[in-house]
Design a protein around this nucleic acid. Structure first.
Lengths: 161, 161
DNA sequence: CTAATTGCAAATTATTTGCAGCCCC
DNA sequence: GGGGCTGCAAATAATTTGCAATTAG
């Protein structure tokens, strides 16, 4: 697995061009923003950030680009209570969702996993990949040292047991 | 109207009463329906089924009850592209999502997992539970022997890599 | 009885789409 | 220069809420 110190928008840019996609200002900015954070932002949050640099960009453009960039494999999407969140880290990795504040943290996958993807989930099933979802309380919430920041990312209910 | 005799509804019923919750007809039916299937139905699907027995029930009631039953731990919720789905199986288990048809299958957890919940996800983090999400093609789709049934449950995009 | 629950309709929130004009390659 | 992109506004889709009437215990 490679480290995530990617010169922001460089990588992927070519992949887009090859596909006949243009590299517009809003598009580049959206890609850079999502890639530069580990906060798994919602479309609305990306929108707010984008507008700090390009105030005329519309929410529709943000949605269109996020959707397209995910389809091209430059980002990934995560369905979450309260809306879709986007992840600039496309390497296989797991997540930890804090049931108190709703934040989602990345968790590097154990070295072992790649070697043993539980092969026969069910007979005849073809497993392309897997991901572990952990849930619990993050360090900050455990100490009660932080306020609920769910507002930033929409309420993130726990995803079940 | 006809009351099916459903053994499963017994459990949990008391838990509700203890909490001062009433056991209304719509409520009992909703609980039974979700518990009697492994299709991880959406609120809309539950609604359609409920109305086959109680035609006057409103969608709002279905939502209110699903939400409440999940909060009481009698069901669990799963955020999914296109909307929340509900799962009557509250035992720890994993899921397999077919990227072709969107169906979600239950996968029993390996015996080993309970013993080694990857403890230190991050320092200071308190892990309450975990769940593996597999994705790939199910047997039916692999053989091309079935049609896309996503209509039944809303489009279920893969959840990222 | 009487508080919890419901049906209905209207309100919110998340996301998508149609279209005329703009701007990358 | 021309087709992909964009902004805007209006359209959908998913979910929630206010409230008077209903009903379980």
């Amino acid at each position: 697995m490679q480290l995530r110190i990617i010169p922001k928008s460089a990588a992927g840019t070519d992949a887009l061009r090859a596909r006949g996609k243009r590299l517009t200002r809003p598009r580049r900015l959206i890609l850079d923003l999502v890639r530069s954070t580990d906060a798994h932002p919602s479309a609305a949050l990306v929108y707010r950030e984008v507008r700090r640099h390009l105030p005329r960009v519309s929410l529709a453009t943000v949605y269109r680009n996020l959707r397209m960039l995910a389809a091209e494999g430059l980002l990934s999407e995560r369905a979450d209570a309260g809306g879709t969140r986007f992840d600039g880290n496309t390497d296989p990795h797991d997540h930890f969702t804090c049931v108190a504040c709703g934040r989602i943290y990345d968790v590097p996958p154990p070295a072992a996993r790649r070697v043993s993807p539980r092969a026969a989930v069910r007979p005849g099933f073809e497993v392309h990949g897997q991901r572990i979802e952990f849930y619990g309380r993050c360090d900050a919430c455990r100490r009660g040292s932080t306020r609920d920041r769910r507002r930033n990312y929409a309420r993130a209910k726990p995803q079940g047991h």
